[in-house]
Amino acid sequence: MSTAASSSTSETIAEPGLKIKVSTKEGEVFELDEKVAKMSQVIRGILEDLGEQNGGDDSVLPLTQVETRIFRKILVWLKYHAGHDKEEAPKAEEDEIIARFCEEIPEWDQKFLNVDQAVILEIMLAADYLDIKKLRGLCCKTVANILKTKTVEQIREMYGIENDFTPEEEEEIRKQTAWCEDEPPRQGSNH
C-alpha cells in the first residue's frame, strides 16, 4: 500500500496503514498516518471527498500556509493525541468536548504550549486552517489566560498590535470600561 516518498526532502513516519502525504509551505513533504491526518477536519473532508481512490497514489496534499517548523510542532501534538485520546464522540457534542478538554488543560498540553507567544498564535492559526478544533481551543484558552494578566499597553506591545483609535475614541472606550480596571476594589466596610 504505502509508497516510498519521492521527494528528497520528505520525512517518513514508519507506521503501518494508509499514509497521507502533505506538504508544507516550504514544500517539505510529510507522510502521516491516516488516523493522525484525519484529526484535521479539512484533510478528513478532502480525503472523504476523494473516496477510496486515494490509496497508493503519490500525490501530495498542499498545506500552503503552514510552515514546516509549525507543522512539526502540530505533528507532535497530533501524534500524541491520536495515541492518547479516546474515540471521538458524535459531532453534535463537539463543542462540549472541546470545552471540557480545555477546561483544565492537561499537563502534556501545557508543556506543549509552553512556547513563545508568537508561536502559539501560529499554531492556532494553523490549527484553524487545518480545522483541528481541540488544538485551536487549547491555544485560545492559553492565549486568553495570558491576556487576562496583561494591561492593554502590554498586549499591544507583546503582539505588535497598532493602536488605531484616535485619542478621543480611546478615551470614550476608557470611560465605558474604566470602572472595571485601574481601580482595585475597595475593601468592604459593612457599616
Binding site: L125, R136, L147, V152, C180
Partner: peptide, 23 residues
C-alpha cells in the same frame, strides 16, 4: 472567529479592557 473563541474564555470583566486594544 478564532479571536472570538479566545475572548470566549474570558469573562466580561477581563474582556472590557481589551476593547481598548484596537478597533
Amino acid at each position: 472567529e478564532v479571536l472570538c473563541k479566545i475572548f470566549g474564555w474570558l469573562d466580561t470583566i477581563d474582556q472590557l479592557p481589551l476593547r481598548r486594544v484596537c478597533k
